[in-house]
Write a protein that binds this DNA or RNA. Structure first.
Lengths: 194, 194
DNA sequence: TCAATTTCTTGATCCAGATCAATTTTTGCC
DNA sequence: GGCAAAAATTGATCTGGATCAAGAAATTGA
């Protein structure tokens, strides 16, 4: 796992100091591969892992009764991944987590995750801060979904979307922005325009 | 503040044990009143406080460029309140926090909030867990906004909405459900129906 | 390399829910 | 209680973006 210390340490910012005694935690991680199109978790199953992405793009989505995918979020190089509520509560997931490109990830299981906080209570600070940030980001997205029309959502997204995401089929981006691929395509034609 | 110990302790669940040494924390709180219609924070200002509601209902909303209010959430007896991102980052808020009924709240300022974690690192566990729960709740709401039509959102909301919220004008509930008061009224006519 | 499959684009139509307009009902206040 | 202001209802109309349909472009894989 030594080769990925840097990645893990970066992912775990803003936990400023990973002290010597934390190095044990670095060995919790197990490396896994997921080819494009494979599922890390599916609706109905329990999410067993908490991930850090080494490489690749993954999408979390929910399947509506009429069968369309609604993308909730993406993960990619350096970010966390997993179906968080299912993982924490060890209850059935409503979501799919799919590799959109060939992916390599690091993962730890729930027992390891729990022991992290038991053994090193100072990780709770990391947990508190990281969850604050995730929460603020989610509220931000919610506000954008509620207050902006399709064109505005498209523009805002395009201006700050990580390049990495541009490699996935547009229909996933469209879904994330809560619009159809047709609408997404039409918005694309008028970049910068009204 | 003694009279409100119970309230605070309940609000801070799941921090199971407030030990003797934490009793100092109970005295951080200051009681304030906000009459109906008054603002606890306004857009452009910095949120200086973190609140626990003793009594009353408050709404967080954003004002769109065309001037309509979009309600993001409510707080009421026993829950936390405040404009969280502004409070944490000490940066200008985009939101309004308005008392929808005469309200009494307990509040602490940012310095006190920070000192909580400095002095009693074990509060970080509370922080981590409470933010996990808030995050999961937000994602749940986001999924409902994205996947459900107006009638479904109305039904789901009505089935689990705290009675306390039924005392506020319907236009706020309508806005929270991302629909107009007219639509809300029409949904109301067909409770239980198709 | 080239056929099969998937994705993207473009145009035509449709509809849930917004907007506009007019009452009616409720609330608050003296 | 009674009157003004705010909120809720109801009906008529409008529209952003969905849906449907068909073809063009890109990707995949043998």
């Amino acid at each position: 796992m030594k080769e990925h210390y840097e990645l893990i340490i970066n992912a775990f910012r803003p936990l400023e100091i990973l002290e010597a005694k934390h190095l044990e935690f670095l060995d919790f991680w197990e490396e896994v591969e997921h080819p494009k199109g494979s599922f890390l978790t599916e609706a109905g199953k329990i999410e067993r892992y908490f991930y850090v992405v080494i490489e690749g793009v993954q999408a979390v989505y929910i399947l509506t009764p009429n069968g369309d995918k609604k993308v909730i979020g993406f993960s990619f190089d350096g970010s966390f991944s997993g179906i968080y509520d299912s993982f924490l509560k060890e209850s059935g997931s409503h979501y799919f987590l799919e590799a959109l490109t060939d992916s390599r990830l690091l993962r730890m299981n729930k027992a390891q995750y729990d022991s992290l906080f038991d053994r090193y209570p100072e990780f709770n600070e990391w947990g508190r801060v990281i969850h604050q940030e995730l929460l603020i980001g989610r509220v931000q997205r919610e506000v954008e979904l509620i207050t902006m029309d399709a064109k505005e959502r498209f523009d805002v997204f395009m201006n700050r979307c990580p390049k990495k995401l541009m490699t996935v089929p547009q229909k996933y981006l469209a879904s994330y922005l809560n619009m159809t691929p047709e609408t997404f395509s039409r918005m694309r034609k008028q970049i910068g325009g009204g």
